[in-house]
Amino acid sequence: MLDIYGEQILELSRHPRHRGAIRKPSAASKDSNPLCGDEIEFQLLIGEDGKITDAKFSGQGCAISMASADLIANELIDKKLSSVKGFDKAAVFSLLGMHPGPSRVKCALLPLKVVKMAAYSKLGAQLTEKEAAME
């Protein structure tokens, strides 16, 4: 159970690399986890070549959600905006290096939902039911 608090998660939650705000974001989105009320905002800066040149998050959350947000931001920088569509929960768990277990899975997937909301607003896409439900 305590396996979810590995060194990487604890370190990222203490010292996130991509926490903050982008001065003029190309896309932004915000949502909260209805279970705990935690809120996360994601901002994306998108270059003319359709690549994500910067990604930042802000908000309050547990170690799992904060580490997940930081890893997602880190992963998406320099990737094509359109690649966010194929970026799924398995990729998030892989970045986290673990499956957070049923009681904490939404903590890990809220940042994914929010970053998808921001990206999809530019791509003209809709969240799937599972993406919206963080399942």
Binding site: I4, Y5, C36, A63, R104
Partner: peptide, 9 residues
């Protein structure tokens, strides 16, 4: 420590 993390421990 976020309450959810505390509760998990």
């Amino acid at each position: 420590i976020h309450p959810h993390d505390a509760a998990s421990v």
